Amino acid sequence: MTYNIKTGGLDGGDPSRLGRILDVVVEQRPDVLALQELRGLRRNRRRLDSVAQRLGMRPYLAGGWLGQPVAVLVRPPGRVLAARPVRRPFHHGAQRVVIDTDRGPLTVLSTHLDPYSGRRRLREAGWLIAGARRAGPDTGPLPDRLVLLMGDLNSLDPWTGHDERIGRLRPGYRGRHLLPDGVTVDTRTIAALDRAGFVDLFRRPGVQVQNTVPTTGGGGAEFSGMRLDYLLATPPLARLAGPCRVVTGGAAESASDHYPLVAEFDLDFR
């Protein structure tokens, strides 16, 4: 499961939002959880531990260069073989965790790419690809390994027409998703990850592509019905993937401005 929880669940006008975020996660009960926008949780370790305890998971946190931390949480009995941030100046951050499974080591990356610059997002994607290739004890070629990249990539995909949704954005937000010519939609980041061998799990037969922002009650003036959150897997892991979905309805409509994404895989922790 991946979830951008919007400023760590901290809103001056809505102190109950973090509780709704946790309700959404508890209902889904993921074995591996990627979280983004963990404002206040890096310095306040007690608060992070409280969140992890409520979820019954172990947290692995990575700070950002300018923005907010990200994390990967793992539910016992998952055995973590390695855990360390991708050491590059991401705007937000990237955490890399390697978990032992019956199919071999599973590398999980949680990230949140630069929201303002397509050029920066493309550079960050290159750092993620390099970071996935150097993940812990599993050092084989990237296309032959089990790697899952999850998070808010703040990027539009190259397989969909986006002119209408770009047109609905306020003028001040359109530049985030356009090339320097101010006209062409910037899809370079997802295209680069695709060329590196990552499979978009929502492009498989029988899976419905859905927007991930904004939610109906969580704000998000910078969005216009867009898919910015992704579950990307290397081919061996994609072959083990079952159902995947965007979680909508109930508390998910107001807990954040992003909907969470969930995928199931035919593998078990060892």
Rank of each mutant, 00 (worst) to 15 (best):
S155P: 01
L231T: 05
G220A: 08
P77R: 08
P214W: 03
V213H: 10
V97N: 02
Q53H: 07
Q28R: 03
P235H: 10
R123N: 02
P69E: 12
A238N: 03
T212H: 05
R88L: 09
L148A: 15
R96W: 02
V185E: 14
G19T: 07
R45Q: 14
A135I: 03
P85A: 14
L41Q: 02
G40I: 08
V199R: 07
Y173W: 14
E164R: 06
L106W: 00
A52D: 12
R120D: 00
P143Q: 08
F269R: 07
D200R: 00
T101M: 06
M1D: 03
L106I: 01
R245C: 05
Q36F: 06
V246Y: 01
G8T: 09
P180D: 10
L38N: 03
R39F: 13
R170F: 15
P85C: 11
A255L: 04
L201G: 05
Q210A: 15
A83Y: 01
T187W: 07
L18F: 09
L228R: 06
D102N: 10
L113I: 08
R204H: 08
S16I: 05
D49E: 11
V97D: 00
T2R: 04
V80M: 09
R134L: 11
Q208S: 13
R123P: 01
Y116G: 04
G104K: 03
C244H: 08
R204N: 11
D186M: 10
L231C: 08
G217R: 15
R195D: 15
